[in-house]
Write a protein that binds this DNA or RNA. Structure first.
Lengths: 343, 343
DNA sequence: CTGAAAGCGCTAACAG
DNA sequence: CTGTTAGCGCTTTCAG
């Protein structure tokens, strides 16, 4: 009696049945019609396959086809809910299209990022969706130039030739700042992420231009921070609190920083929004339930993931549908209770 | 001039150099000494490899070695910060040991879970770390019986033969409930997750036994809910609010449910802890900053991930170090402001 | 309608 | 010290 469990192969089925491996392969790949395989042969092959619970060896298939049906997902921190949500949608959408996800967390280290990119290449992923750590994207461009389909999410670079999906950062930032200005704020601290990152620059520019529109002189000492993380928000907020005159509002260019900022404020006993106002770029589900519900710019998380997958699959499968250079998604401004109205 | 970019192979190096593929393979795998390859040969091989920027084809290697250096990570929802954090540590620890992570999000669907398990098998992962959806773990046992190394995190099953890492759920729940009782609460609503899941049962039992210790009769109408998600917390809280007499406290057996519960309470204008108290099993970073800072049971997230990886690698590499049946990690009870003291 | 044979890129006997 | 050969499991010409 042939074996029932374990690693079955086409060969085993073929031997059990006395047909060729080729035939089994064809049947199981739905090519019976194409090769005019007799209904009867097809029947017995299928039957035997289910009987021994055959599972194709995708590694062998990958090697042969030079296609792994795998996408590399490179993020800076999968524990960050922003990327968690993104990953979820990327995972779902990928699976729908027959791809699996190889997860890589760079921990915001460029060095590791480079290493991981090599790993993904070595593992022959069909494409990579990445949210880069830093300012320079040379290693991304390099990989892309080697022919690896790539899509960048959230962050992007100056003069980058890689298609990307992100939010309309400039516009969202511009309007959030105008909102602050319209409420009478004139001295607005801005906690930024990676300074040279285009994502960041766009947000900062939105902030600046809004000030200009209101005839408020730009004060570069008010723009602080250099990392998209909680500690930055925390530390820079404490620094801003020491300013004289103290800013009346803080615009945080990321939700982790906003969280850190909020924590610092609470720790210092500074009341929001009475003593200081705060707005966050990027939303979190718990924002409405904080001690002071946070006003925030919500990004289209799920759309971002789905579009990224669609773009990369377009690249991979070389469909004619034009792959845009980049997509800027609309954001939603959720006004809550963290901004004081001076009017 | 030989090519410089693209998919290089051992063969290319061998041809460029006029040596055999075997030799190249040996050098690049650090077996020069073992095979007494001349320093000179080693030199030129290494040089050529870096010159053409050779990257081994891990798919081919996997097929040949019957080992993919890949771990399947199966979770119910990667967007949930609990799993996000877990994933992060699993990813880091895996990479340290030379493994990559194939991410699979079941979306809490058993059907998809089964499908994904087959996929992971098909992809020849060396092992799987899973946080199962439901009550029954048959498909997990089946895969394990086929010889797949497996470790279960967070959740676990009755009579399961798969090693697991989780928190000391019973004890943590027992003590949290006692805390509530010590503050004078006698009517304590309990929002549970999957009823038949052992993780849940343990937590419910801790709750029950604490009541018993305080001589409080167990009222099964007070145990509500059936899913580890926000909606459950939200809906069941609204239901509990309708009870007469109304419970004075809610013990939520998961943080997503606690979040939903908190949202429901705020929406209904019920004050925490004045009108009703709340405790959450499982901690979230934002809990201290909510409108009422939530008292919660913190789990050892990072340790859980690291231990899971160590366990699975032990299984895979069949080291002698005994792999325990299961590990129950200590929890930490973080007392904040969400429990009213009736004393 | 079916099969034999080659080969994806790699490692590991075995041979010298 | 180095090379030849076989083969991991699969798909795909090519041949019949």
């Amino acid at each position: 009696m042939p074996k029932l469990t374990g690693q079955n192969t086409l060969k085993i089925i073929a031997e059990n049945l006395g047909v060729s491996i080729t035939t089994v392969s064809r049947v199981l790949n739905g090519q019976s019609a194409k090769y005019r395989i007799s209904k009867q042969t097809e029947q017995i092959v299928r039957k035997e396959a289910t009987r021994i619970d055959y599972e194709p060896n995708l590694v062998a298939k990958s090697l042969r086809l030079q296609k792994t049906q795998t996408l590399g997902l490179l993020v800076t921190d999968i524990a960050n809910p922003f990327f968690g949500t993104l990953a979820r949608h990327i995972d779902l959408e990928s699976r729908k299209n027959g791809y699996s996800i190889l997860l890589c967390d760079s921990g915001s280290s460029t060095e590791i990022e480079i290493e991981l990119l090599r790993l993904l290449e070595s593992r022959n992923v069909d494409g990579v969706i990445a949210s880069p750590v830093g300012q320079r994207g040379d290693h991304f461009e390099q990989l892309k130039d080697k022919g690896m389909p790539m899509v960048v999410v959230d962050r992007y670079f100056k003069g980058m030739s890689i298609p990307f999906v992100t939010s309309d950062n400039y516009k969202a930032s511009f309007e959030a700042t105008k909102y602050l200005l319209s409420k009478g704020h004139r001295r607005i601290g801005c906690i930024q992420g990676l300074p040279e990152c285009l994502l960041n620059t766009d947000r900062v520019n939105g902030y600046k231009d809004a000030l200009t529109e209101y005839g408020v002189a730009f004060d570069d000492t008010l723009v602080v921070g250099n990392q998209y993380n909680r500690d930055t928000g925390y530390n820079e907020t404490k620094r801003l609190l020491g300013y004289n005159p103290r800013p009346t509002a803080i615009f945080s260019l990321g939700s982790s920083m906003a969280f850190g900022a909020f924590a610092a404020l609470m720790e210092e006993g500074v009341k929001v929004p009475e003593d200081i106002s705060i707005i966050s770029f990027d939303e979190q589900p718990y924002f409405p339930f904080l001690a002071t519900p946070l006003t925030a710019i919500a990004q289209q998380n799920s759309a971002m993931g789905e579009i990224a997958v669609k773009m990369i699959i377009n690249c991979i499968e070389g469909r004619n549908k034009p792959v845009g250079d980049g997509v800027f998604l609309e954001t939603k401004f959720n006004i809550r209770k963290s901004v004081r109205d001076f009017n």
